[in-house]
Amino acid sequence: MDTEMFHADAEEMGWQDRALCAQTDPEAFFPEKGGSTREAKRVCLTCEVRDECLEYALAHDERFGIWGGLSERERRKVKKRAV
């Protein structure tokens, strides 16, 4: 494995170690269809890595869950506006 590539990936993902969602119930961030996203979004509001999380989700086309305080539908809208 290319150690430079591994280091870059680890650096890119370092924000996840500081994410508040890693310290809470993961099911809140992946609710059942029609389930509430309120709890997850409340956690995201005070998370220091919210921006990095959202950037990651947008860059990697995450289709499920709450990332950076936004649902998949909300992230789609953000992507459309950016085009």
Rank of each mutant, 00 (worst) to 15 (best):
G65R: 02
G34R: 01
A57F: 05
T3A: 10
E48G: 15
C44M: 00
G34S: 05
D51L: 14
W15G: 10
K80M: 10
R18E: 13
E55I: 11
Y56I: 05
H7Y: 12
R38Y: 08
K80Q: 13
D51N: 14
E12C: 08
E4F: 12
P26D: 07
K80V: 10
T46R: 15
A19Q: 02
K33P: 13
D61F: 10
V83L: 15
M13N: 13
E72N: 11
Q16S: 15
R63F: 00
D17M: 13
A8R: 15
R76Q: 10
E12R: 12
E62P: 04
A10L: 09
D51S: 14
W15C: 09
G69P: 06
A82D: 08
V83K: 15
T3E: 14
E11V: 14
L70V: 05
R81Y: 08
F64L: 14
F29I: 01
C44S: 02
V43L: 04
C21N: 04
T46H: 13
E11G: 00
R42W: 07
L54H: 08
E27R: 09
R76W: 10
R81D: 14
Q16H: 12
S71F: 00
P26N: 03
G35R: 05
E62M: 05
A19L: 07
D2E: 09
E39G: 02
A10W: 01
A82E: 11
M5Q: 15
D9E: 15
D2I: 06
D61C: 10
E27L: 08
R75I: 09
R81K: 14
E4Y: 13
E27I: 09
R38W: 07
W15H: 08
L58G: 01
C21W: 01
R38V: 10
F29Y: 03
W15Q: 08
S36W: 01
C44Y: 04
T3I: 14
K41C: 01
A8G: 09
R75N: 07
C47P: 06
W15S: 10
R73D: 12
K79L: 11
I66S: 02
K41N: 05
L54Y: 09
V49A: 06
K79D: 08
P26H: 03
D61W: 08
L20T: 02
D51G: 13
F30K: 03
A40R: 03
A19S: 08
K80W: 06
T24C: 09
F29W: 04
L20E: 10
E27W: 09
C44V: 01
D17R: 14
A82V: 06
E27V: 07
R81V: 12
L58D: 05
A82Q: 10
W67K: 01
M5V: 15
S36D: 04
L58S: 06
L54A: 04
E52Y: 08
E55V: 13
F29K: 07
L58R: 02
K79V: 04
